[in-house]
Amino acid sequence: MKEGVRYTGIASEEELKNSFGIPSAARMKQGPVAVIECVQEIPCNPCEGTCPFGAITIGDPITNLPHLNETLCTGCGTCVAMCPGQAIFLVNDLSEQEAEVTFPFEYWPLPQVGDEVDAVNRAGEVVCKGRVTKVRNPVAYKNTCVVTISIPNAFKDDVRSMKRVIKQTPMELAEQKERASQLVCRCEELTRGDIEKAIDEGATTIDGIKRRTRAGMGLCQGKSCERLVARILSEKLGRPLAEFLPATYRAPVRPISMGVIADNCEKE
């Protein structure tokens, strides 16, 4: 079996060594740093422009391989999200026992901080367990979530992703089913499952949920459900609560008798 990215889809040790994006072992000990595993000359340079610290250089032509300046790199992770090829990772050599690896992740469901996950190598094989320490998915990352997991130090050069969650155990399913039947919006009798379904169908805002389900359009006008809906959105989309603005309010914001308004109008 021939080695190398052309034959296996995985960059060989040789290819990585001859590229210009791999930081030194000493730099990894000083905190998170980008590891750019880009070994083929393809026309692509967003990493260069996206680094806020000018730590990545490609130049002209844009097929040049990226060069990492490990001193300038702060390990912020912006390039991890912005590389269209998803070829950039962060490694943080924390101690003799522990290391952190950060990678792009574009599969639902997103992991949550604290989850124990299967850490996989470049071939998708599970090599160890990992604990999720950070899940970043701000709007600026354009839906490429950046996940950090803590793993045993020995695997820091191997682990480059985590196994996506596909199948749930019967117990998890039962639990989820029960949670799904929990009432969230009492006025319109909507369950958590209804809200989650709306998110699966593409809703990303409280207004989006409202238009699809009527959550917040009942008697209480969202007083009980709005915050719950925001929390479900935040959990499911992996985004901070701060991003979920309240729904659009229109008069009447309190239940009133329409007859009263109508009568008064007539008199005028």
């Binding site: 021939k2 990215v5 052309r6 034959y7 296996t8 889809g9 995985i10 960059a11 595993e37 880009c38 070994v39 083929q40 393809i42 590389c83 269209p84 090829g85 998803q86 070829a87 599969y107 996989v120 190598n121 470049r122 071939a123 998708g124 094989e125 480059r160 992703s161 196994k163 996506r164």
Partner: peptide
Amino acid sequence: PAIGGYGVHAGKIRRAG
């Protein structure tokens, strides 16, 4: 005998197993 497309696209699906 070799992959036709970009290595980075191949790398993504290899990591997914």
